[in-house]
Simulated scan of single mutants.
Amino acid sequence: MNLTISDTSVFNRLRIILVDTSHPGNIGAVARAMKTMGFSDLRLVNPRFDDALTHPDAIAFASGAQDILASAKVVDKIEDALVDCHFVAAVSARLREFSPPVIAPREFADKVVNTTTQPVALVFGSERYGLPNEIVMNSNVLINVPANPVYSSLNLAQAVQILAYECRMSVLANPLYSAPTSEIGFQGEMASLDQIDRMYQHLEEALVKMDFLDPQNPKKLMPRLKRLFSRAQLEVEEVNIIRGISKRILDFTKK
């Protein structure tokens, strides 16, 4: 689904920051995860490889999201990556004795989508060591993904995907957001109650004619059919198809 993006939209305000990333492939996979959810602001802090954004593994794992890599910025210090950010969330599977408030991804998403219009940063640590305590303690919140406690290790791109997905879903759930009409699949006009009622009458007449429905002992056939069709949210063309089938049955039984 395409979204109309304003200047204050979370899609323009959310910055993904990767600290001390070891594998260029993970950086490419993060770019892909971001693009699939509509985000584009990527910053790298002191990556292991100087060519982290142009490394063949990064390009390969980006899989069509090379534009995210091309626009990404590389800095030496976390402070440079956080410039202009008003709210910082550290992401870690490891809880700390002294840390900011711990929240879940969905709570974070609802907060940044519905309660602020300022730039926000999501900070992810290295694949092996996670985030330094100093970065965590200087953040506003610590995000912990409620994964399997026996094995809570997430790939870097998976963690980014979860947070980006939650933010996107929070936008879609916002009652102030009006989604554009989807261009995927056929979008028909919903049938009116009168059109559906006349379809039922036509169908019932056809079923009686073909001896499938006994009008003296109808049992619950028509109520069950109505229950079945009500779940389908019938469109005008679909109602017309059912009425066309009913007409052919009636025509056939006249012969």
Rank of each mutant, 00 (worst) to 15 (best):
N2M: 05
L3W: 03
L3R: 14
I5M: 01
T8M: 00
V10Q: 06
F11T: 00
R15S: 10
I16N: 00
I17V: 15
T21L: 07
I27F: 02
A29Y: 09
A31L: 10
R32Y: 10
R32D: 01
A33Q: 04
K35E: 12
G38L: 11
G38F: 13
D41W: 06
L42Q: 06
R43W: 11
N46G: 13
A52L: 07
P56S: 06
A58G: 01
A60Y: 06
S63K: 05
G64F: 09
Q66T: 15
D67G: 03
L69S: 03
S71R: 14
A72Q: 07
A72R: 04
V74N: 03
I78K: 11
L82V: 04
D84F: 10
A89Q: 11
A89F: 15
A89C: 15
V91I: 15
R94G: 05
E97T: 13
P100V: 09
P105E: 01
P105G: 05
R106N: 06
R106D: 02
R106K: 12
V112Y: 02
V113C: 11
T116M: 15
T117L: 10
T117P: 00
T117W: 00
V120I: 15
A121G: 08
A121W: 10
V123T: 09
G125M: 10
G125I: 12
G125S: 13
S126P: 01
R128Y: 10
L131D: 03
M137D: 00
N138E: 12
S139Q: 07
V141W: 08
L142W: 12
V145N: 00
V145Y: 04
P146N: 07
N148P: 01
Y151R: 10
S153D: 03
S153M: 00
L154Q: 02
L154Y: 12
L156C: 08
A157R: 04
Q158D: 01
A159H: 01
Q161R: 03
I162E: 02
I162T: 07
A164N: 08
Y165V: 09
E166H: 11
E166T: 09
R168D: 04
R168P: 03
M169R: 13
S170R: 08
L172G: 02
A173L: 14
N174T: 14
P175Y: 13
L176F: 08
Y177H: 14
Y177C: 07
S178P: 00
S178T: 15
P180G: 13
G185Q: 07
E189C: 04
S192D: 01
L193A: 09
L193I: 00
L193N: 11
Q195A: 11
R198F: 08
Y200I: 02
H202C: 11
E205T: 15
M210H: 01
D214M: 06
D214F: 11
P215K: 13
P215G: 09
Q216F: 05
Q216M: 12
R224A: 07
L228M: 15
R231I: 12
A232N: 00
A232H: 00
A232L: 13
Q233M: 08
Q233C: 03
E235S: 13
V236F: 02
E237F: 04
E238M: 03
S246M: 01
R248T: 08
R248F: 05
I249T: 07
L250I: 13
L250K: 07
F252H: 10
T253I: 12
K255L: 13
K255E: 14
